[in-house]
Design a protein around this nucleic acid. Structure first.
Lengths: 124, 124
DNA sequence: GATAAAATGAGAATAGTTATCAACTTTAGG
DNA sequence: CCTAAAGTTGATAACTATTCTCATTTTATC
């Protein structure tokens, strides 16, 4: 990844935003200073920056939603290779909601954890 | 929500699938037994079942991705009312990846937690 | 069984994102 | 500091996942 003016602008704009903006929001902000910037350039650069670990893309699962008939508190692991989703017991994060509530003072109604990695089968 | 044949079929199909299928996967399975079922019916019913707490929709954030220039391990809270995203420190779930790794034997490369609820401002 | 409310299928519509491609930038080597 | 190769850009078409619309059919109620 070599230098690019647009990428620098995008990264700076993201850094100046305390919130965790969506691409759409960033696009609106960017266009004010830089009316010619293209939406494709924005997405391309956000993805590149994320792939290089310079920023982080927050979006649990990637494209499509998954559905689970098990409604008991539990979490999920998605294999980056085979894309299968596995259950992880709620024990890995005890009192999670309570702790987060104490830290923030927000009313927290639920939590989802999504782990990423490579499952046993794909590891072999 | 009153009874519906299609909803029953959809729920049963979901229950019989160990994996956590996407709508697309479910649609393929459903069509075999029930060729006339419509994709809209499937989505409508999955949403209804999820709203009624009968199944769970797994998808971190809703529609669009958010981007974060802070790449240190930390988690997020999204306010269901104003849709703003807030940071939550990694302390709420100590040794999370290690614990999940011990439980599963998978190679875990990362974890995302998304909390849902109502933020302080919206609570007032 | 008649009637109102809810659910359906088909396909159009939408939102978010990615792909394509010709023109322009950046980098490295001579 | 010129040039060729590699990378990046803007514009727009294309794609994917999901929701909306609406005429028809099912379900619940009296």
């Amino acid at each position: 990844m070599n230098y690019s003016r647009q990428r620098e602008i995008i990264l700076n704009t993201l850094k100046q935003n305390v919130v965790h903006p969506t691409a759409e929001y960033l696009y609106d902000v960017l266009k004010k200073e830089n009316p010619s910037i293209s939406l494709a350039t924005l997405y391309r650069n956000l993805n590149q920056l994320a792939e290089n670990g310079i920023i982080k893309k927050i979006d649990g699962l990637e494209s499509s939603s998954h559905y689970d008939h098990n409604t008991h508190e539990h979490y999920h692991f998605i294999c980056d290779k085979c894309k299968k989703v596995f259950d992880i017991s709620a024990d890995v994060a005890p009192d999670l909601v309570k702790k987060a509530q104490d830290e923030t003072g927000f009313t927290i109604m639920g939590s989802d954890i999504v782990f990423h990695g490579i499952c046993k089968d794909c590891n072999e």
